[in-house]
Design a protein around this nucleic acid. Sequence first.
DNA 1: CCAAAAGTGTTCATCGTACACCCATGT
DNA 2: ACATGGGTGTACGATGAACACTTTTGG
Lengths: 230, 230
Amino acid sequence: MSFYKNEDKLLVAIDSIIFGFDEGQHELKLLLLKRNFEPAKGEWSLMGGFVKKEESVDEAAKRVVFELTGLQNVYMEQLYAFGNIDRDPGGRIVSVAYFSLIKINDYDRELVKKHGASWIPISELPVLIFDHSEMVKKAIRKLRIRARTQPIGFELLPEKFTIPQLQGLYEAIYQSPFDKRNFRRKLLSMGLLKKLDEKEKESSKKGAFYYRFNKKKYKEFLEKGFNFGL
Amino acid sequence: MSFYKNEDKLLVAIDSIIFGFDEGQHELKLLLLKRNFEPAKGEWSLMGGFVKKEESVDEAAKRVVFELTGLQNVYMEQLYAFGNIDRDPGGRIVSVAYFSLIKINDYDRELVKKHGASWIPISELPVLIFDHSEMVKKAIRKLRIRARTQPIGFELLPEKFTIPQLQGLYEAIYQSPFDKRNFRRKLLSMGLLKKLDEKEKESSKKGAFYYRFNKKKYKEFLEKGFNFGL
DNA sequence: CCAAAAGTGTTCATCGTACACCCATGT
DNA sequence: ACATGGGTGTACGATGAACACTTTTGG
């Protein structure tokens, strides 16, 4: 133990970009909070936290999301390590950013309220502290890439969803419309979806059939990677 | 200054995956070294170093490559932050891995020798210490993705190169053959290459024309991203 | 003259894209 | 009956993939 005696030690933090899909508003949203501590108290920022000696960086990232949302086992991916000297005026901190996809109806409202967090549409993002805007920009870019190559869209929807809902999500991610015939054809042709008998009747008179995943195929796809081509 | 007083500080390191293309052997290679210090002295590893208080993580990554190769301004990209608690038995270290692409004839032989480093084909990689094998695996995966979407292959070749050389590089990266007619057509159709009058005559009697980039278009492509589709 | 690598075109299948009408039903 | 969103099929162009012969020239 303890080689490397004379090297510098640094604070290592996590910052968490948490995506949710607001189906009613057809908007992709981020869970942002007003900092209630110094420095930069009162300004908008991402949820963050420090990596402790006795936890891995991944564990710290999970903990941070859990502390804000009460959720575990959410889709999470490391985004990038931000390491400029002056990125945080409060000290020399290296921050590893992660992004998460959560089902927007699942989170713990109390916790979120306690932290002073709110869901903000990505089209109306406020100025964020430090380099957090850069993190968000990178996260959105990466999310768009992922959504083309892995079926992660489903992480943002409830168990049962309709094709129009799924299309709405993709349109929110890319902020551009898709042709509904082409969209439906492509999705169904992958064999990932299982049609249910039940219909969703809130958003139209005719009603749209609910679908659910084929989890087996989903796993295969996750391993192999593939191309949505949307 | 100095908020965050009671948080843990950690060692933060860089590990550097350095790619070079050995045109003669048609092989993509990595610059690896036998550690001449504890722990794990004598075993194969990546080049590494600690991030110092007064330098950014990116700067540290550049420094590490410079210390081993004497090169500056090389293509470099952050790969991933590795943060398991026990990843280095010598202590709790978070390592940010970077990969670099260098022109294999440019580096400083003295420095490389001094560090006990050698070029190893990616098809014959030895067992590496700690999680370095995982880093390399991720780097190769990312390099393959990049080579499809950005013209980074050129970073691995000398200023003047022939189409067969370029094709050899891509074949080394993907470890699979390409059709030379399709390859040539696609590359030329992008308008990135400028044909020179000179021929390379070492590897064939007929000789192959040298090409060079159109650096202007190259910059455009770098910004926009695009698709090689190889 | 021959070996060895460079260079060159065409065909076919696949996939993405564009596009307009009918269906079911709640009010 | 009508307004509203759900659901369906076809035609065209672009792109990737497969494939074989001619050219040059040093030895």
